[in-house]
Design a binder for these strands. Structure first.
Length: 443
DNA sequence: TCTGGGGTCCTAGGACCC
DNA sequence: TCTGGGGTCCTAGGACCC
């Protein structure tokens, strides 16, 4: 089974913000260089799409469309609720992303795996998900492989359920455009189109040798199998993390090496925190650079030992920045660590697994994090559209917009009627950022 | 007011080793 | 007294996914 939550970020926003229900909502980057992460179905009707620049989406959508930055804590909580429901169906669940997962129904005890049986199961699960999430819906596909389940979940979006009966795989698959297969993006689609392959059926008549010559060894063999619905990929509950990174596109291109160095420090700090939280460390530090003209390059260095130390990550990345150069200005920097192993450096020393020449004890105890100072956020950055807030007198609400020293807040919550709008001073001491609202009814 | 941020996997060349 | 071959590691880039 494959589950895909419908327009997930936008659906959570509409749940928590009653005034947005039934209206176009776009979630994503709200700055000058932002792109759309999710558009609600109402916004899609105007042509807003994922991965489109937010500027383009603003041009297409009517005034009154909500453009919101993301509230990832809220999405994570709702996703966790859904994933738990899936694990009640079967112990073998593979989350693919925050809004998508595979479930191995054959790994569960006592399920009726007939077409009627899994159809009933799918409908029941959809109802349970909507009830537990406060109305977020999902589309489900069920079939004899990951491929068919995923194809199925896509066929009747939103709020769909498609069961592909055993033996019916090719009649479902072959009429579809090749681009519906995972792994066929713009570059592969272009190559396939050039040789007249438009549908999966077209793909299925090409020889393995043809496909390998066209798109390479691994990819060619993969497409050859998928076109025949030949897919025995297992559902894997926990794919280990392979890399941890943080990157940022700046509002304006940066040239000052001192400023860029501080950006590297702050990204290294976040990467280090995440490594330590996951009790992992890595040997290869990678710096990613996107220049003013959008050309992108990476420079990496592999260290003698794995690290989770932000200072070491930062100094390595700073060195790589000098190597990469900053001429013309940079629009993005990214810092990443890969080549991960499960034990953090401190633990290795403590367990005597690594010889550090006897200096570990002192170093492991005191690790100050990279920049000590936490700069005060400028007013434009303190409030962002969609943000949860609380006002001492006016109660809970969310930020609609800000500018010219003012913030506009709508005071409402998941279980209120659409609430009133108030414009307040951006430095109103009674107004504070808040946690995401609780959508579940207390029982 | 063009083009995010988090990832994974594959390919290819050079260094290095046996 | 040009030239091997296979395997692994490292680096860089590209395609793709959500």
């Amino acid at each position: 089974m494959h589950l895909d939550l419908d327009a997930f970020f936008a659906a959570v926003e509409q749940r928590d913000k009653p005034s947005l229900r039934g209206r176009p909502v776009v979630v994503g980057g709200v700055g000058g260089r932002g792109v759309v992460a999710t558009a609600s179905y109402e916004a899609r009707a105007y042509g807003a799409r994922s991965a489109m620049s937010t500027a383009e989406a603003r041009r297409r959508c009517p005034s009154g469309t909500a453009f919101l930055g993301g509230r990832f804590a809220a999405y994570r909580r709702t996703s966790d609720v859904v994933m738990s429901l899936l694990r009640e169906v079967s112990p073998l669940v593979e989350p693919v992303s925050i809004d998508e997962a595979y479930v191995d129904l054959a790994a569960a005890d006592g399920l009726d795996l007939s077409v009627d049986g899994v159809t009933a199961l799918g409908n029941e699960l959809k109802a349970r998900i909507a009830a537990a999430t406060g109305g977020v819906t999902g589309s489900i596909g069920i079939g004899t492989s990951k491929l068919m389940a995923k194809i199925g979940s896509d066929l009747q979006k939103p709020d769909g359920l498609v069961v592909v009966a055993p033996g019916r795989e090719l009649e479902v698959l072959h009429p579809l455009p090749v681009t519906r297969l995972g792994g066929v993006g713009p570059a592969t689609a272009e190559r396939l189109h050039q040789v007249g392959v438009k549908t999966v059926g077209d793909l299925a008549v090409r020889s393995l040798t043809d496909l390998v010559a066209l798109v390479g060894k691994a990819h060619g063999a993969g497409l050859y199998a998928l076109a025949r619905a030949d897919d025995d990929r297992a559902v894997v509950s926990d794919r280990g993390v392979k890399s941890v990174s943080h990157e940022e596109t700046f509002e304006r291109d940066l040239t000052d090496v001192a400023v860029l160095g501080r950006e590297i420090d702050s990204m290294a700090t976040r990467v280090g925190e995440r490594l330590r939280k996951g009790a992992i460390s890595g040997r290869t530090v990678t710096l990613k650079v996107r220049r003013y003209d959008f050309t992108t390059l990476t420079r990496s260095q592999t260290l003698p030992q794995p690290t989770d130390d932000a200072r070491l990550i930062a100094t390595t990345a700073r060195r790589l920045l000098i190597e990469a150069g900053t001429a013309g200005g940079l629009r993005l920097l990214g810092v990443g660590v890969s080549g991960l192993s499960v034990y953090a450096q401190g633990d290795l020393f403590a367990e005597g697994l690594l010889d550090d020449g006897g200096e570990a004890e002192a170093a492991a105890e005191t690790e100050p994090e990279v920049p000590a100072e936490v700069p005060e956020l400028p007013v434009e950055k303190r409030w962002w559209p969609g943000q949860d807030v609380r006002h001492d007198e006016l109660g809970s609400g969310w930020v609609w917009g800000r500018g010219l020293g003012r913030v506009t807040v709508r005071f409402e919550g998941p279980r209120t009627t659409p609430g009133p709008v108030r414009t307040l001073s951006a430095d109103d001491p009674a107004l504070q950022p808040a946690d995401p609202p609780e959508w579940r009814t207390s029982e």
